[in-house]
């Protein structure tokens, strides 16, 4: 690991100033960054520890939403009674990720900013356009069973690994950011970006910008929501495919819905086509199947991950049926 100097941020302004000067990284829980540093993938000269900044609370907003501090540990987010009651899919997604020990360490902002687990990205002896722009993408013809089927580019077929980000994208969460140029807010989806020809950029964050909070707007039917994750083993594994869905049903009709998919793209994938197809239509398996098919018709699977296309559609249909049958 490259030697680095360690600084503990006293306030946001000084933290941003250090990071904006370059060759520095913010340290949250470190569960991904420390590992990437050990692998030689991340080589910052300065680590700015932001875990003692006052971003460790979950507060009510005036609009009735929740403002989740960037430094809130994943386990505290999932344990919060308001999150569990109002947005079960968010609590379920968080506890579906990693292990108990890692959730105790990992922060909300760090979870959003974690890097892909694509094997080529994590192996510095291999080319990777995300790690080393212009070096190539061996995954496209190599090991890509668990990589993207939607929104990928010639340059990169990586997936975003977060479970938590999937319901946040469905909920239209807003990322609060402080940077050298002041503060701004970026809604999800829109915070993470598709790879295009700049796969080294996972998000729209500019150099030195620091995530300070994630705001979850109120959703009246959020209590009728679910996160469903398919993985290669029963626990402690990244999603092959996952679905976060919230459904507002009355008299057999879908009044409103929010849907996002995980494990299928470089971003948590908001299923806008499926949502539009479902809203105002019947809450039936046939309608759900049609909507899921419409969403996944955009997929361009690679040679060895085509199974994800029907898998994602089936998991989406089953999740919606479960939500109709719930309560």
């Amino acid at each position: 690991m490259r030697p680095f100097t360690y600084e503990r941020a006293a306030d946001v302004r000084s933290a941003v100033a250090v990071c904006a000067a370059g060759d520095a990284a913010y340290l949250g829980g470190g569960t991904n960054l420390v590992d990437l540093m050990r692998l030689g993938v991340a080589t910052p000269a300065v680590l700015v520890d932001v875990t003692r900044l006052p971003f460790d609370r979950i507060e009510e907003t005036e609009e009735g939403g929740l403002l989740i501090g960037a430094g809130v540990r994943n386990s505290d987010l999932a344990a919060d009674s308001r999150v569990r009651r109002r947005h079960p899919m968010l609590a379920q997604a968080v506890v579906a990720g990693a292990s108990g020990q890692i959730r105790n360490m990992a922060t909300v902002a760090g979870n959003l900013l974690q890097r892909t687990r694509c094997a080529y990205f994590q192996d510095v002896t291999k080319p990777c356009n995300k790690r080393e722009p212009g070096s190539g993408c061996p995954a496209r013809r190599g090991e890509h069973r668990n990589l993207a089927v939607l929104g990928h580019s010639d340059a990169c077929v990586a997936t975003h690994p977060s479970d938590m980000a999937v319901p946040l994208a469905a909920l239209g969460a807003v990322v609060h950011i402080e940077g050298p140029g002041g503060s701004r807010q970026v809604p999800m989806p829109g915070f993470h970006r598709l790879p295009g020809d700049r796969p080294e950029r996972d998000t729209v964050l500019e150099p030195g910008e620091l995530v300070t909070a994630v705001e979850v707007p109120p959703l009246a039917f959020g209590a009728r929501s679910r996160y469903r994750k398919v993985r290669d083993r029963a626990s402690f594994a990244f999603a092959v495919v996952s679905v976060a869905a919230a459904l507002d049903v009355a008299d057999g009709m879908v009044r409103d819905c929010r849907i996002a998919l995980g494990g299928v793209a470089h971003v948590p994938w908001r299923a806008e086509l499926a949502e539009a197809e479902l809203c105002g239509g019947p809450a039936t398996e046939a309608a759900f199947t049609r909507a899921a098919g419409l969403e996944m018709a955009q997929a361009r699977p690679l040679e060895r991950n085509a199974f994800k296309v029907p898998l994602a559609a089936n998991v989406l249909v089953r999740t919606l049926i479960d939500l109709v049958e719930a309560r």
Binding site: Y6, L27, G30, T31, V34, D35, Q101, I102, M105
Partner: peptide, 9 residues
């Protein structure tokens, strides 16, 4: 709280 000491600086 339980944590992984191998990932804790």
């Amino acid at each position: 709280r339980r944590v992984k000491s191998c990932l804790t600086l």
